[in-house]
Write a protein that binds this DNA or RNA. Sequence first.
DNA 1: CATTTCACCTGGTGGC
DNA 2: TGCCACCAGGTGAAAT
Length: 281
Amino acid sequence: MPELPEVETIARGVDARVRGDRIVEAWFSGYREPFKTGAAKQAKGLEDKVFLAVHRTGKHIVCELGVGRSSAAGSGEEPTAQWIVHLGMTGRLLVTRPEAPVEAHTHARLRLKSGREVRFVDPRRFGRLEYRELHRAKAFAGAGLEPLTVGEEEFAALFRGRTLAIKAALLNQSLLTGVGNIYADESLYRAGIRPRRAAGRLTRAELRRLRRSLVEVLEHAIRLGGSSVSDYVDAEGVRGFFQLEHNVYQRAGEACRRCGTAIRRIVVGGRSTHYCPVCQH
DNA sequence: CATTTCACCTGGTGGC
DNA sequence: TGCCACCAGGTGAAAT
C-alpha cells in the first residue's frame, strides 16, 4: 500500500499517540511465521518496553524502544530495541481504543499502559514485522538512499550506466528507498520524462529535473497526508488527500491536465505505469 | 552482476 | 445473484 508520504504520515500519527507509552501485553496471530522475527520472540521482546519515538526510514516504520527508566519517558533515553513495521500493500498500523471491534486480518495487538492499543491489520499479508535487540543487531537502515535528502551528484550516480527503464530504477529500493508506483509515475510526469527511457541515458538536465520533481511531489504529498486510492487510512483513521492531485496515476484515458491528451497506461517492470505521451519525452 | 518475471495473498470491480 | 478475469500503493526469489 503505502509509499514514503503515507508511511511518513502514519509514523508521525503513531508517534504522537504512543510516545512514552508502555507495552503491557503483545499478541500475534500465528498465520505463518509472517514476520522476520518469530511471533513468540517478538511478543516477549516487546512486552514491558516503552515507545521512545516512532519514525520513518524508506517505507519502514521504525519504533525505538527502551526500558523507560528515565523520569520523563522518551526524553533522551537511548533505545535498546526496535520494532520495525513494513506495511506491504495493504497493511495498516492503527492506534485504537481497546474496545474498538477487531477487524478481520488483524495480525498483531499491543496493549498499552494508557489503555490504548496498537494494531497491525493486513489482508494481503505482504507486510513484515521485525524485532531487533540493539545490543545484538545493528539499528535498522534502509538499503537505498533517502530521496528527500539525496544530493544531486549522488542521485545522478545511482543511474549511471544502467540500461533498465528509469521507472523500474525509481522503484528499486536498493537505489532509492521509499519511492513506489504512484510517486514514480507522478515525479516522471512532473519532470517530463517517459517511464521507459533507459536510466543511464538521461541527460544531466533531466536528472536534475527528476530529483527536484521527486522531492516536490513527495513533500507536497506529505503535506496532504498522502494518497488513499482504496484502503489507506492513517493512524487517526483519516484519509490522505494527495490522490485528488494525481496527474497521471490511475488516470488512463483521462485528459492530461496540462495539454488535454489522453493519459496512457503501459506496463513497465511488471507494474502498471501512467504517462502523458505529449508532455513526457 | 544486472535485469526481468513471477509468486506471494485477499478483496474489489466490472463484464457476461 | 454467480462466476470469472483482472486489477491493486511491494518485495524478494528464481530465471534469463
